[in-house]
Design a protein around this nucleic acid. Structure first.
Lengths: 204, 204
DNA sequence: GATAAATGTGGACAGTGTCCAGATGACGGA
DNA sequence: TCCGTCATCTGGACACTGTCCACATTTATC
């Protein structure tokens, strides 16, 4: 139960699904140590495998972190869609729900969030990563376009897109960075209310 | 001219002002390698001093980085005040200028900005650092209070403070993280205009 | 069943942060 | 002027890191 290596029995030379196990362990290490303390050898040790085994699946540290970031973007989008699904089907409410989902994800996986948006230890142009990021972005632009009655790719939506994205991102980043003192002491509901207020200002 | 050690001649056992030299070199290393690539030994080498010399002045790596972050917050505030000084003395214009100064700083020292706001390699509660951060925050709350006609410490200003801070921070962070594709290709003036638009929405 | 490819091992190397004992020199009191 | 104290700085040590390499083992393919 401790290590993924135990699933197939400890004596098999080949792991079976090392790639997946490394991703699971990698995310755990990331959450425990943060981006800056992340160590590839620690991930290998946790899986019960040689320190250089990960190289065959991810190349180097950046490779594993990039794969984690790509997976993060997919869950990031899922978190927003989950909030949108339980919100009224109104353009404005959908945008507010999206912002709350943004905060959900950042608070549930702060280290991953920072890896995705503010780290030099990934390759943002990795196809898998770039595509996952674009999908999340598309959800935002679609929402704004719908709210403003524009075509999904109308560049006229850019100012609103940027404003929404900035306020949600800034709020989430400041909260998980513990750099917004007056908000630290608030309950989750109060933080959410503040975020909704801020986004609402942008949408009006 | 290359190293601060040369100022007093290379042969003196004691450096003279090693602390200041380490801060200068530290910021250079930070700018070149980013937070995650920062190395204390590299800073020592650049100054021309033993690898363990910095310990006597800053304790460990976090100590030096915390000192750099504190200095960063002071320059952060100065950047905002500089923009405010050349803007009309109108509450609204002052807030917009403050946001532009926010972006100025982030773009001029992205690695330092990320160290200050999103890193685990500093101690946010260091007195010097906490005080420098509070001073910058106070400038923001004062601006919002003035705009809304409130007393400087009226908690009723919180929603607006949070909204302004979030939008400026999110915009700056996304720009320097190169995670906002549609904005990457724009000129500095265009980015600034987008930021002012976004902040203006919040202020209305 | 033999051969090629994929997967995993363990040693090597350079680089890192931090601890430690000791060398050096600045500074104040006699 | 001399002497002792103390801050400063050196260099070695240790454990840890990422990455490279030769090699072992297993799987896949013909």
């Amino acid at each position: 139960m401790t290590d993924a290596a135990d699933v197939k029995g400890k004596e098999s030379y080949h792991h079976g699904d090392l790639r997946a196990a490394l991703l699971v362990a990698g995310e755990a290490v990331l959450a425990e140590t943060g981006v800056e303390g992340f160590s590839l050898r620690q991930v290998a040790k946790r899986v019960g495998v040689s320190h250089s085994a990960p190289a065959h699946h991810f190349g180097d540290t950046q490779g594993l972190l990039s794969a984690l970031a790509a997976e993060g973007f997919r869950r990031f989008l899922a978190a927003m869609l989950a909030r949108q699904a339980e919100a009224p089907d109104d353009p404005r409410e959908q945008m507010l729900a999206q912002a709350v989902g943004y905060l959900d994800f950042a608070e549930s996986a702060p280290a991953l969030f920072r890896l995705m948006f503010g780290s030099d230890r990934i390759w943002p142009s990795t196809p898998e990563l770039a595509e996952a990021g674009r999908a999340a972005y598309r959800n935002l632009t679609d929402g704004v376009a719908r709210l403003r009655g524009l075509a999904p790719d109308d560049p006229a939506a850019l100012p609103d897109v940027v404003a929404c994205w900035s306020v949600a991102h800034g709020f989430a980043h400041l909260v998980i960075g513990r750099r917004m003192e007056p908000v630290q002491g608030l309950s989750r509901d109060e933080r959410e209310a503040l975020l909704r207020q801020a986004v609402a200002k942008v949408l009006d």
